[in-house]
Write a protein that binds this DNA or RNA. Structure first.
Length: 307
DNA sequence: GCATCCTGTCCCTCTCAATA
DNA sequence: TATTGAGAGGGACAGGATGC
């Protein structure tokens, strides 16, 4: 990719390549950062027949720079940009946003692909996309819902459009098919048929009319059903539930003896170094063996980050 | 057999937007 | 400006699965 400096007036933003979400605080911090240290990472553009350049990646940075220029017209007379192929604008855009802008179902599919096909450990994937291993487990849960298909997959679709929170897929996974139908019929559909309700909520959400259900609502709706509506028997679920309750209710039960600070710090450092080394090895394999350009790019990027 | 990783579950904390 | 509510993410556990 060729690096050039472009006049801001030459840049054109396309809605189809802009971010789907917004974060005011992030944008404020981005603007402050660019004001303070400049544009650390050039944006990516593609040439247009008109002589202008389409912003492929960097609309938020451009927005921040525009805001800075509104206050100070002398700032950023040119903007550093990598010139990419217009034909590859979507590929490049989605490579860049592989872990920032994906729907929950897409992220779940990506995680499982990296894990199963490319053999990247889930802890490494979590570090790469900047979430905890616990959060990554939610993506695993989403993937399992998708694998079950039918109404379970529809639940993920409802999560994608924001009707149902995606933060606790296991509330749904514990149900049988009959249990799922029972929950939807009794707590969500309000007299409508299940299929019609699901399709109606998805369509409405896509038109901007999203009816959101809370995690508490989901938990209440999927909990406390008859035992026949759960995949595992009540005793087993009670044991697992008790683990969480014991942990929350009496933390000192689980306190471990404190080892000398120096020793534990040394051990931690040694462990971290070992983890990083292993992660780099896995990622090198992905870069070398994967046939997916997106995954090669992601693995190269994470390897560079870890090193 | 042991070490490591993954799963399913719980509650808590933090962030952010909406509202008073 | 302070408060509130919702959602996202984190910490922790036991136990199962897997690989060496």
């Amino acid at each position: 990719m060729k690096l050039v400096n472009l006049d801001p007036a030459q840049l054109v933003v396309s809605h189809e390549l802009s971010r789907s979400g917004s974060a005011k605080q992030f944008e404020d911090r981005l603007r402050s950062s660019i004001e303070e240290i400049g544009l650390a990472e050039p944006i990516k553009v593609a040439p247009l027949p008109s002589g202008q350049y389409l912003v492929v990646d960097g609309t938020m940075r451009l927005r921040a720079i525009t805001a800075i220029r509104d206050a100070n017209p002398d700032a950023f007379k040119t903007i550093a940009a990598y010139v990419t192929d217009y034909e590859r604008r979507f590929e490049i855009r989605y490579q860049t946003d592989i872990y920032q802008d994906l729907l929950p179902s897409q992220l779940a599919a990506l995680v499982e692909h990296l894990h199963k096909t490319e053999r990247v450990r889930k802890t490494d994937i979590a570090r790469y996309i900047g979430v905890s291993p616990a959060t990554l487990r939610n993506y695993t849960g989403l993937w399992r819902l998708l694998q079950r298909g039918g109404l379970f997959a529809k639940i993920v679709e409802l999560m994608d459009v924001g009707v149902i929170p995606s933060s606790n897929p296991y509330a749904w996974l514990r149900l049988t098919s009959d249990g799922l139908r029972c929950v939807l019929k009794d707590s969500f559909c309000d007299g409508e048929s299940i299929d019609a309700w699901v399709q109606g909520r998805i369509s409405a959400a896509r038109q901007g009319n999203t009816l959101r259900f809370t995690t508490n609502f989901v938990e209440a709706a999927t909990g406390g059903l008859e035992p026949r509506f759960y995949r595992q028997d009540e005793d087993l679920r009670s044991v697992k539930r008790d683990l969480g309750l014991r942990r929350a209710g009496d933390p000192q039960l689980f306190d471990v003896p404190v080892t000398p600070a120096v020793k534990s710090k040394t051990e931690r450092n040694s462990r971290v170094k070992r983890d990083v080394k292993t992660a780099v090895r896995h990622l090198s394999n992905v870069t070398r063996e994967s046939r997916e350009p997106v995954l090669q790019t992601a693995a190269r990027s994470l390897r560079k980050y870890l090193q």
